[in-house]
Design a protein around this nucleic acid. Structure first.
Lengths: 149, 149
DNA sequence: TATGAAATTTTTAGCCA
DNA sequence: TGGCTAAAAATTTCATA
């Protein structure tokens, strides 16, 4: 994990479909060596994976919310995780400390759909309390900057 | 945006580096037609982009937190956004409604570093109040399921 | 880490229903 | 429009040093 690896990761954070040749030009190595390095970064777990990013608004789900969830006593964690994975509107989920147990991010067609998601969470998945806020705007950052530290 | 497009997007959400040939095999079209469709999905904005995902723990930042931020009166939003982008430990940021104005996700080497981030936010970027919780576990979901609706 | 050849993939252009 | 084939260009992989 030297300076060149950090550069490669930074480039791939920006555009995960850059070819090895393009990466190679940027770091001034051969395409081959570059491919080796990138594969090793993936194999070693530094790069967890590559993923397309979806515009949920463009597919008809413009209502985005962050909800804190508290579970009822005795709700099984793994079962709850599987339950979350079964709700398509839930696009991200974290176990957290503090007042609530989980925080999820949700993308819905509208308020009625969100109401349905909440109802399912409470009725079928052991959710006792919810606090939600509307997600207004995703602030664009420069994820690669963390590698410069 | 028909059933095949949805299948393609779902595949690329899982693995953003799948080749057009691999995608083509999965949806039983020619590599060419598949490439056309994927390029159109990107051009039309359904696919926002492709990005490598970093394992922050693997690069020495195992402390992950979610912090709610409230800004002081009169703090300029765009200026604040630029400020956030200048803090490498901030890996995601949203403008939200509710009790707080923003929610950010942070990855740090340890508590001292996080303390430093909080200090900078308050001293230099107009943050008035912070509420943080530790991020314990990222629940793995199936992002493509949203396309099946 | 680099080189060069082989295999694969992507792009381009033209064509068909 | 949506799909295809085929040839050309680009890229990746593999063997070797």
């Amino acid at each position: 994990m030297d300076a060149i690896d950090r550069q490669l990761v930074a480039l791939l954070l920006e555009d995960g479909r850059l070819t090895y040749q393009e990466l190679a030009r940027a770091v001034r190595l051969s395409a081959n060596t570059t491919a080796d390095r990138v594969r090793k970064l993936h194999a070693s777990g530094v790069i967890r994976g590559y993923h397309a990013t979806l515009d949920h608004t463009a597919i008809g789900r413009p209502l985005h919310l962050i909800s804190d969830l508290r579970l009822r006593e005795g709700t099984d964690n793994d079962e709850f995780h599987r339950g979350l994975a079964g709700i398509p509107q839930v696009i991200e989920a974290f176990r957290v400390t503090g007042e609530y147990d989980y925080q999820i991010r949700v993308a819905c067609t509208g308020t009625e759909e969100f109401e349905g998601v909440l109802a399912v969470l409470k009725r079928e998945h052991g959710v006792r309390e919810v606090r939600s806020r509307l997600l207004l705007h995703h602030i664009p950052l420069t994820p690669g900057s963390i590698l410069e530290l």
